[in-house]
């Protein structure tokens, strides 16, 4: 029962296409995901219905076992985000079982984090947001942190790439993330319940971090277009063989003054004097 509609509770098999255009029963478009390993459905359903549904529905759910494994494996901020993205916990039962497993080192670190966050900001969720910068602090926060990671994972995956393969296959994970990253982030803050509010508030900050790669892709696109438009004037078929677009060469203000053997070329850019003469 990997997917569950958070409105009516109907469940769908992993990879099911039924839910792609909304829940066939109630039309709901918020779902939560539980890997087939089995998680506490009651807790997650509760949380999902509680208004944090947007992120909980799209975020893969994590079993207590997974939580433990993931936490012990966490070493860096990016890893943390990746793990939390693939295996967040939303149920209170999960939190309890996970926190029981923590050792004293973890608790010490958790205390450190709480102190640190307390100095900076009284909102406990903010530490979750800042945690990607330091993996050690990230894993130590108790239930709140998992909540936070559940909220923030919609944005996190795009930065961290593949999720936990044991929970779901990468294609599913990426497909889900893509949708979440674009559509969910701006909508989240208004629909928070009190418990989720803090983590939701943290999400935009995380969103900023992970949206950086998204910002780069349009830049690359522009660069490529720019390069293509430049190559329209002279096309190098192979070294020593060139095709020239005379109109393009004529219409350009700058002109190519030197072609290098490695495919680079030097152009002269018109200066202010030339521009004023025209």
């Amino acid at each position: 029962m990997p997917h569950q509609c958070t409105t009516c509770g109907r469940t769908f098999e992993d990879g099911s296409k039924e839910m792609l255009s909304g829940c066939p029963d109630c039309g709901g478009n918020k779902f939560q995901f539980q890997p087939s390993g089995g998680a506490n459905a009651g807790g997650s359903a509760k949380n999902g219905a509680g208004g944090g549904a947007t992120s909980a529905a799209t975020a893969p759910k994590k079993t207590p076992e997974n939580a433990r494994t993931a936490e012990s494996a966490r070493t860096a901020g990016t890893d943390t985000v990746g793990n939390s993205a693939s295996a967040p916990e939303t149920g209170s039962d999960d939190r309890n079982s996970a926190s029981n497993d923590r050792n004293s080192a973890v608790n010490r670190a958790a205390a450190t984090v709480r102190d640190w966050v307390g100095k900076r900001d009284n909102t406990p969720r903010d530490d979750a947001t800042d945690d990607p910068a330091s993996g050690s602090t990230r894993k130590d926060t108790p239930a709140q942190r998992k909540d936070a990671s559940a909220r923030t994972d919609p944005s996190a995956p795009s930065a961290t790439g593949p999720s936990d393969p044991s929970a779901e296959d990468s294609a599913q994970a990426s497909a889900r993330r893509d949708v979440v990253t674009e559509s969910e982030l701006p909508d989240e803050p208004p629909q928070n319940v009190a418990d989720a509010a803090d983590s939701e508030a943290a999400a935009p900050q995380n969103g900023e971090v992970v949206s950086a790669p998204d910002d780069e892709s349009p830049g690359l696109k522009e660069l490529r277009e720019e390069l293509n438009s430049q190559f329209e004037s002279i096309r190098i078929v192979e070294p020593g063989q060139y095709e020239l677009n005379l109109m393009e060469l004529y219409e350009r203000e700058e002109y190519i003054i030197s072609l290098q053997e490695d495919g680079k070329y030097v152009i002269e850019v018109p200066d202010a004097w030339d521009a004023s003469n025209r």
Binding site: I234, I256, I257
Partner: peptide
């Protein structure tokens, strides 16, 4: 020579405009 000729064409077209 081919490369230089290509540069030359670009230059000729540029001067025609400028």
């Amino acid at each position: 020579r081919s490369r230089e000729a290509t540069e030359g064409v670009a230059e000729a077209m540029h001067w025609l405009r400028e």
